[in-house]
Each structure stands twice: as C-alpha cells, then as structure tokens.
C-alpha cells in the first residue's frame, strides 16, 4: 500500500486533463448550454475512490484552471469545486456503499451546489440571472454519472490505483 501510494498519479492527471479539454471543446450553439460539468464529475469520482490523494487542494487547483479556461472571475470555480471536494470527502464512506442510481442523486446535489456557488459569485458582481436552462448541465451530469463511474472504475482497477 505504501509502495503503491504514488502509483497511478499520472492516470488521475490524464483524466483531469481530458475533463478540462472537454470543458472548452467547441460545441454547436444549440447544445452549448448543455455541456456537463466534466471537471466536477471527475473530481467527485476521484474524491470517492482515493480520498487520501485527491481532495480539496486538487479541487481548488482544477477550479482555478477552469476559471482561466472559461474566462470567469479568478477563483469562482476554484471556490465552488473546493467546497464540492470537501463535501464529497465528508460523505465518501456513505456514498461508496450506495447503489449507482442513489449515487447519481448525490452527484446531482453536489453538481447543483457547484453551479449555485458559481452563480452566487456572478450575481454578486452584478451579472444578470441566467435562464432556467442554466441548471440543465447538472441534470445531464446526473444521467451520465453511471457511465463516468463505470469507465473510471475500470480504469482504476486496470491500473490498480488506490
């Protein structure tokens, strides 16, 4: 266990890089607003799976990169993702035992929290409220959670990351 501690850090980094790429990959205008929160999903998974390696610091750093990539206020997503990571760490022992659909509901709550904190900051600096479709990415995130979970779990088992 101690020998294997650093094992697979590269794989975790690669999944985050892919999530960041998907965050800014150009999409047609009609589906732009539906882009799920890839970084949030990947972060939640790794916080559940290897809570001693991926945590609040990782969440904050990834959030900062998201801020830079999407041109939002520096720290907006960093704060939100750090809070999401913190809550996931708090809940990880319970959520791990849930069946996948119940996990998906928990993920929905966490993703909505991410968006809510981010929205709170942007309202605070005087931007207008978004339309109702603003919340669609969280719902979509809930529906794709099982796939993310299965894909990353097989990745984790394949590379024996613990």
């Amino acid at each position: 266990m101690i020998l294997g501690r650093r094992h697979g850090g590269g794989i975790i980094a690669v999944t985050f890089v892919i999530a960041l790429l998907l965050t800014i990959a150009p999409l047609p205008d009609s589906v732009r607003y539906l882009r799920p929160d890839w970084v949030g999903l990947v972060l939640i998974y790794w916080c559940l799976a290897v809570p001693d390696r991926v945590g609040v610091g990782t969440g904050w750093g990834m959030g900062l990169l998201v801020d830079l990539l999407t041109g939002s206020l520096l720290g907006q997503h960093a704060m939100a993702l750090a809070v999401v990571a913190f809550l996931t760490l708090k809940l990880h022992l319970r959520v791990r035992l849930f069946p996948v659909w119940q996990q998906a509901l928990t993920v929905l709550v966490l993703l909505i929290l991410h968006q809510l904190l981010s929205l709170w900051v942007s309202r605070f600096i005087g931007r207008p409220g978004p339309p109702f479709s603003y919340w669609a990415p969280s719902l979509l995130g809930m529906f794709i959670w099982p796939f993310i979970y299965i894909a990353l779990r097989s990745l984790r088992r394949g590379f024996r990351i613990s």
Binding site: I24, P26, L27, R32, T70, P130
Partner: peptide
Amino acid sequence: MSVDLDPYKHQVL
C-alpha cells in the same frame, strides 16, 4: 481560437 468559454458570457479567445 475555436474554444468555448463560459456560455453565459459573450467572450472570445
């Protein structure tokens, strides 16, 4: 650059 930014802000790179 063909990169998507925050969809609720009109920004370009």
